[in-house]
């Protein structure tokens, strides 16, 4: 009888235990970030370097995607509004949709793919080639130098990219509206922003920061915990993208719900 209990190694099952351990370790990783971020030394140069890597190098992709999202969303919304004779509401609709939801969400999803996978793979590769251990034995805190700088840089650069993406998407929308209705730039943007309130902008910025932080934490956590050679590096990149996208949608749902409660409170 005792022997039967002695061989039971897992609390639930191997998969569930590993998943729960992973969640707990990720939570501790996030806590460690808050412990380390305000403690010197501060690696400002590395933060700027990472802002460049994350922000500037993502600009072409964000520009293209943002523009196309603006054009396509406008084209697809037009028929529905035409049915009600409400095409003049198109700039307002686009303003609300892009600023409140599409801008932050599209940027976060692109960054989860581009920035998150790159970060996860880079740190994973550093882990399996002992570069992270090399930093430790050189008395350099790898968590502070590699993870904290990347998470801070992501939390700065991705919200800025999100603003930029929203602007480019509105520009795409304007091009479409202007071509069909000759609406002026000023009128379009005036109508576009007329219905947007402070809470909308605040929620949008807050959402972007939360998404960016999530991408940074997950990418660094997966990278720092990569194992088993090149396959481990691939897995770290892949798991970063999947988990970050999943978390972004969950966070979107929660933040929208909370902002709606605040709005009607």
């Amino acid at each position: 009888m005792l022997g039967k209990f002695a061989v039971k190694k897992y609390l639930f099952s191997k998969g569930i235990d590993e998943y729960l351990t992973d969640v707990y370790n990720a939570y501790r990783f996030a806590l460690q970030f808050f412990k380390e971020v305000f403690k010197p030394p501060f690696h400002f140069r590395e933060v700027i370097n990472q802002c460049y890597e994350i922000g500037l190098k993502s600009l072409p992709l964000i520009t293209l995607t943002g523009f196309i999202v603006g054009v396509v969303f406008t084209k697809q919304s037009r028929p529905s509004l035409e049915d009600f004779g409400a095409t003049s509401w198109l700039p307002s609709l686009m303003g609300i949709a892009i600023v409140k939801a599409l801008g932050p969400l599209v940027t976060a999803l692109i960054c989860a793919g581009k920035v998150g996978s790159g970060m996860g793979a880079e740190l994973g590769s550093m882990k399996v080639t002992e570069q992270i251990e090399a930093m430790e034995v050189s008395a350099i805190n790898p968590f502070k130098y590699l993870a904290v700088t990347r998470i801070v840089a992501a939390s700065i650069a991705i919200p800025l990219l999100s603003f930029y993406c929203s602007f480019i998407a509105l520009l795409g929308s304007f091009v479409n509206v202007h071509n069909l209705e000759a609406t002026s730039f000023v009128t379009f943007f005036h109508n576009g922003f007329a219905t947007i309130k402070f809470l909308d902008v605040f929620t949008s910025v807050f959402k972007s920061i939360v998404f960016a932080f999530t991408i940074g934490i997950i990418a660094c956590y997966k990278g720092f915990n990569a194992t088993r050679g090149t396959r481990g590096v691939g897995n770290a990149a892949n798991e970063t993208v999947v988990l970050a996208m999943f978390m972004i949608f969950i966070e979107e749902l929660v933040i929208v719900q909370v902002s709606n409660w605040i709005r009607y409170f």
């Binding site: 590769s125 550093m126 080639t129 002992e130 570069q131 251990e133 090399a134 034995v137």
Partner: peptide
């Protein structure tokens, strides 16, 4: 202490 790693661990 100096540590020379098996994989060299140079920052690539």
């Amino acid at each position: 202490i100096g540590f020379a790693f098996q994989s060299n661990a140079l920052y690539d």
